[in-house]
């Protein structure tokens, strides 16, 4: 499908470049080194960070923000290390993901991937306890991902029953892991989230 030039958003590149991490987007000269070395592209051939960057530079805002491939970057930094233009590709994709999340919060976009739910559930543990509480994370994430508490618990058991038993038997998860390890001065961490958000 040809690009409809009248539907392009010339400001989209600036929007990305104003996000922390997105600053160097415009330096991309489309060499494709990021995509050729990407371990995700090896498994999901449609995954193409070069294309996402070019579409962003052209101003294809809607197509970029609704692209499900945005959510399968591992942040492994292979592209960042190899980019001859110092685009910091991992950080650019992260900046685009944050714009997509803001769009969803504003009710203008529906993100299909559960990744934002996972990231939020993860950060909520930090906000509450100062450290990651695995069980708290799973109890928040699974019901949100599955759409109901019962479905969530069922999915969690399916994914983690064997794993949990294994960890218990090997002494990696004892009764202590049932409860959060809360830091003393949680107020200091709470302030970070209040002022910066997640």
């Amino acid at each position: 499908m040809p690009i409809k030039t009248w539907e392009l958003d010339p400001n989209f590149r600036n929007e990305i470049m104003n996000e922390p991490g997105g600053e160097h987007l415009a330096a991309c000269f489309q060499c494709s080194t990021c995509t050729l070395g990407c371990p995700i592209t090896e498994i999901v051939p449609s995954y193409n960070p070069r294309k996402i960057i070019q579409m962003s530079l052209l101003g294809m805002r809607e197509e970029v923000l609704s692209n499900p491939d945005l959510w399968i970057c591992l942040i492994c930094q292979t592209c960042t290390a190899r980019c001859p233009q110092d685009v910091v590709v991992s950080d650019v994709l992260s900046a685009i993901r944050r714009i997509a999340e803001k769009e969803e919060e504003a009710g203008k976009l529906k993100i299909e991937s559960p990744r934002p739910l996972f990231d939020k559930a993860f950060l909520h543990q930090l906000e509450k306890y100062g450290r990651l509480y695995d069980i708290g994370l799973a109890k928040e994430y699974y019901p949100k991902k599955e759409g109901s508490f019962i479905k969530g618990m069922r999915a969690m058991m399916k994914d983690y029953k064997d794993f949990g038993m294994r960890m218990f038997k090997k002494g990696k998860m004892g009764p202590k892991a049932m409860f959060p390890e809360k830091i003393k001065r949680t107020g200091e961490v709470k302030k970070i989230f209040e002022k910066i958000g997640d």
Binding site: P20, I75, S94, R97, R98, F118, D119, F122, L123, Q125, L126, G130, R131, L132, I183, E188, V189, I196, G197, D198
Partner: peptide, 10 residues
Amino acid sequence: NCCGAAEAEN
């Protein structure tokens, strides 16, 4: 406190 791991994207 936790470093934010890969989940803190900002």
